[in-house]
Design a protein around this nucleic acid. Structure first.
Lengths: 252, 252
DNA sequence: CGTGGCGTTGAGCCAGATCAATACACGTGG
DNA sequence: CCACGTGTATTGATCTGGCTCAACGCCACG
């Protein structure tokens, strides 16, 4: 057992290094020493289970989190039990960026399935970023990328209809998974229909009906959480400001 | 004329310094020398007029822009002439943060009224940030704040009804203007009803009807672009996940 | 005093929400 | 192994908020 723990720890350590790397050191070369410095501040990576929270709304902000394996959803809980799902986070993606400003988490992060998460203490990270220009640049880019992604979501929620929203969701999942080396056309959704609907600003029933419709149209094969994309091209065209859909567009 | 130009330039220079300061050097003390260093890279600030573009979608990203006076809207133009308004930017607010990642603007920025804008060359800014830890921290916070703001908009577009959206819009304008020392209850909207509707994900007609309704209910007095807020408290309660509205809530 | 761009107002319609019932998967305990 | 319970997903029927279409009023400007 002890032996196994050590092996497991090293495995996680290396994988974590990789995932931190890929997001934060992506664009330009950081020296191997700098990469090690960055890696050395990444704290722990114990496996979390479905329902566990990385943090809750209102808690003090200390660290960013990087998903190594599994998936996490972030959401803003409102009194009366309602919530707005802000996003689903897949391996390689970073959580907690919105808390830097207030020094306090405005949203909660809940693990959707057994997941390994790296924790990056932010204060130490900032010190490092100040001494490694390329790391600072990567962080600026990362934050900026998040803003760009949010703008896409604003477009989705502000202008797209239900069909376009679900198509965009599928395309996004497909792209993000394939970026991690997983199949872009065959995957399991770790979130419920309810959570998908909440995220996309749709009722559960609408999501369910659309999955059925897409399946009837031969675009996907859906079995519960298992999704096979059969016609990615068509789904992509539906997701965009799809002119192919044959439906007239809003003008507002 | 020459004389006047010089005076005008100095006036702008000082005001610009102030506005750059307030957003970027807010939280912690930067030394006066560092403030001057920051100020010295702020390039130009010629007055722009209604309809002028700060930048257009697709252009190379070089600088961030800070609104000194006036207002700017950012939007993503889509083919077919449609657009999604991403935001309205008032004095003290920063534009262009989403372009850092791609090194290329994904949205366009158009001036809504005669405005003075500071330009901050990003590359120089980054160099400065790397040597002034508190500036780096401020920039991280600024980017993070933008992400937090976007999350609020996602909530608005995903869950709120038309009434809540317009109320939230009015509250936001009120707060942001008063933060700049302007009246929180009496102001002019520089954007058209169409642009408000686009931003809030509503049809122009809905916006118009709601203004009328709010006026009938004694919450505001509206005359064209001139808005007087008569009952800010009630509007605030409508804007939140308003339980006071007497209307049942969505659950998705 | 047109002419054209907003803004407002009215009437009708529809996408998607809501309500309601059933179906299915996955326990858990007997 | 089955009976039962609980939570989630699907499907159908109905309702409605806000969109669409259309007409008109009001400035502002040439």
């Amino acid at each position: 057992m002890t032996q196994r723990k050590v092996i497991s720890f090293e495995t996680i350590r290396v994988a974590c290094k990789n995932c931190t790397l890929s997001q934060l050191c992506l664009p330009m070369g950081m020296s191997p020493e700098d990469v090690d410095r960055l890696d050395s501040i990444v704290k722990r990576s114990r496996p979390l289970h479905r329902g566990d929270h990385l943090f809750r709304s209102g808690e003090r902000f200390r660290s960013l989190y990087v998903v190594k394996t599994g998936s996490v959803k972030t959401y803003t809980p409102s009194e009366e039990g309602g919530e707005q799902v802000l996003g689903f986070h897949l391996p390689g993606e970073i959580i907690g960026l919105d808390a830097i400003d207030q020094d306090c988490h405005a949203c909660s992060a809940k693990v959707l399935e057994t997941s390994a998460i790296c924790e990056v203490p932010f204060q130490r990270f900032e010190e490092l970023a100040a001494s490694i220009p390329s790391l600072q640049h990567s962080m600026f880019r990362l934050l900026s990328k998040e803003i760009g992604h949010d703008a896409e979501m604003l477009l989705l929620l502000g202008k797209k209809n239900a069909e376009e929203r679900l198509a965009a969701f599928l395309v996004s999942m497909s792209q993000r998974l394939s970026k991690r080396g997983l199949s872009p056309t065959d995957f399991y959704l770790s979130m419920s229909r309810h959570e998908i609907g909440n995220y996309l600003g749709l009722a559960v029933e609408t999501v369910s009906r659309l999955f059925t419709r897409f399946q009837d149209e031969g675009l996907v094969k859906v079995d519960r959480k298992h999704v096979e994309i059969l016609d990615l091209g068509t789904i992509e065209s539906l997701a965009g400001t799809a002119q192919a859909a044959g439906s007239r567009k809003h003008s507002n």
